[in-house]
Simulated assay, not measured.
Amino acid sequence: MTKSQVTFLDLIRGLAAQLVLIGHVTSVSGHELKVTIQDLGVVLFFFLSGFLITTTAMKKDSFTEYFIDRFSRIFTAYAPCLCFILVVGLVLGLGGPTDPGTFFANLFMLQDYPLHVIGLKPFERLGTGQPLWSVAMEWWFYMGFGALFFMRKLPIWSLPFIAVGIYATSLQAVGGVLAFFWGVGAVAAVMLPRLPKVWWFSLAVFFSVLCLQRYRLATGQTPGLSQFYDLRLGLLMAAALFSGFKAVEGWTLPEWVHRASAGLASYSFTLYLTHLTVLEALHGLNGWVKVVSVFVVANLVAIAMYFAFERHHRTVREWIKSVTIAKAAKV
């Protein structure tokens, strides 16, 4: 990817997290928007996740290397954010299950999956961590995808992760559309480098116009579901998104745009994980005071969590690699 393409993806990722935050805070403050932009943010996350994870996997030599990379990237932020949700919830009495069983179920990414097939009740999301459903879903997408991508050289220790991953992925592919959107992003990662230079910017505009038209048609056609989970709208959104990605390939952007986009994207994951806890913590506020206060505090909390934990994920990755290499050498 060129520098401008990286900036384009950073900008989309950062804005997606802000859309989720704004959509949620306005929906409970008396200023609910007509467009469920929080669902738009989630869909964008899944497109980008499929694209970026596939791009990453193509650079890895083994499932072990892929697993270490994904584990360090996710859990360096995820585990501290779980603790944040737990502690804030207990101190402020925010509600939601905070018992040890729920905490460890969420730590092991088991929340929301229907375990009745083996005689267990589904594990709930921890405390006020309602967005945790999608994090667990995405983690098991990673495992299921890794099983397929590295199927010829899978280590024995990976089999439990892969079994759950394939189960979760197949479940969501049947019960929802996010797995499909993730797969669209994965296909784009394989196809885009092979496509010729054409009028990509014009195509991006064309598909964006079609998205607006399809959004209007999808309104009211999917009772109980957001329009953004409409399959045809999703395909048009993906076409617009990745056409834009190709369009900016040769662009030269000011350095401040690169820095601002990278900064906005850097803490998007922690913002997604913690914003509803901040929203619940400030439940006593109302109106636009609540909207502005939650927006500012949620961003500040996420930035602090990023600097304290998430930005160290590469250090964690290298430490895990050094430990596993040392153990392998001893064997």
Rank of each mutant, 00 (worst) to 15 (best):
P254S: 01
L86V: 08
W319N: 10
L48H: 14
L110E: 10
Q111E: 05
M237W: 09
R194N: 15
A77T: 12
R317I: 01
A17R: 13
T169A: 07
V292D: 14
M1G: 14
G234P: 06
F47G: 03
L273H: 14
A179C: 13
I37F: 06
G30A: 03
F228W: 06
T2W: 10
W256I: 00
L212M: 07
L217N: 12
Y78R: 14
K153N: 10
L271F: 04
Q130G: 11
V248W: 05
Q213G: 07
I325M: 10
A298N: 09
V135P: 09
Y229R: 10
L203N: 11
S158F: 04
L90A: 11
A204F: 07
T222M: 00
V42P: 03
E124R: 12
L282A: 14
G165M: 02
Y167N: 05
L94V: 04
R214M: 00
L192S: 09
P122Y: 06
V43R: 04
L148E: 05
T324M: 09
G119L: 01
W140G: 01
I53S: 03
E249R: 13
S266E: 01
D61S: 11
I37C: 08
F181Q: 09
L253V: 00
P196S: 06
G183Y: 15
G263A: 00
L15M: 06
A302V: 03
S158W: 08
S261D: 00
F123I: 02
F180S: 11
C83S: 12
T55A: 01
A328F: 02
F75K: 11
L192I: 08
F206A: 02
A247N: 03
W133S: 08
G146S: 07
E138H: 09
L273T: 14
K60S: 05
Q213P: 09
F207E: 06
R317N: 13
K153T: 05
T26P: 11
S293M: 11
L235P: 10
L107E: 06
L279N: 15
F242N: 03
Q221T: 11
L271P: 07
W182V: 13
P100D: 02
V296P: 14
V25Q: 07
A302S: 05
R73V: 02
F67K: 06
G234I: 01
F309A: 08
A147W: 08
W200P: 04
G50L: 00
Q221E: 05
T252Y: 03
A173Y: 15
F123N: 07
M191Y: 15
V205I: 08
L52H: 12
V291S: 10
K321S: 09
A136K: 12
K153L: 00
V190I: 11
A136S: 14
A302T: 07
G183A: 13
L264K: 12
T219I: 00
V316G: 04
A240M: 02
V296R: 15
V184I: 13
L11P: 13
G95Q: 08
W251N: 01
L126R: 09
P196R: 09
T76I: 00
W140Q: 06
L90C: 07
I303Q: 08
F51R: 08
V292N: 15
V257D: 01
I22H: 12
L276A: 07
G95Y: 07
D112H: 08
R73K: 10
F295I: 09
T55I: 00
L212W: 13
V42W: 04
L21I: 05
V87I: 12
I118M: 00
F63W: 03
L195M: 13
